[in-house]
Amino acid sequence: MENSYPKMYLYKRIVQAKLFIDNNFCDKIDLDNISDESHFSKFHFIRLFKDIYGKTPHKYLTSIRIEEAKRHLKKGISIMECCFAVGFDSPSSFTGLFKKEVGFTPKEYQSRQLQRKVEITDKPLKFIPNCFAETKGWTKNSNFQEVV
């Protein structure tokens, strides 16, 4: 494996840059600075990052902001608050990007997720296949013992 990847140090630097984005996505991140920190030219950095993660650093940053936004929205946090909490500057660009990536507006997504949360709490067995529910004794008519 080492022979197939002679430039291991390149990997380490790209992975560190990715982890930096993971840990700081909610702040203003200047991707030029990250490539400087990694001691790459901007072009080289973007190319290596895309080779490894399948998307440019900018697109990756957007995608993790959207993922984090989904997590916030599931908790019932307001859309405005969520937008700024994950590092977007404007609610309109947040809403547009969110809809493009997720297929729903943040409001629609939140409404669906909160509805699902209520259903999970009220009727959890709707979400658990019987092979698990029966063996845990969670179904009313569990016949696990008789079958065994």
């Binding site: 291991m8 992975v15 560190q16 990715k18 080779d51 490894i52 993660y53 399948g54």
Partner: peptide, 13 residues
């Protein structure tokens, strides 16, 4: 995973 060495490095970290 798409890239084993990168994923290995990240998980080890």
């Amino acid at each position: 995973c798409n890239d084993l060495l990168a994923t290995y490095e990240e998980l080890k970290t």
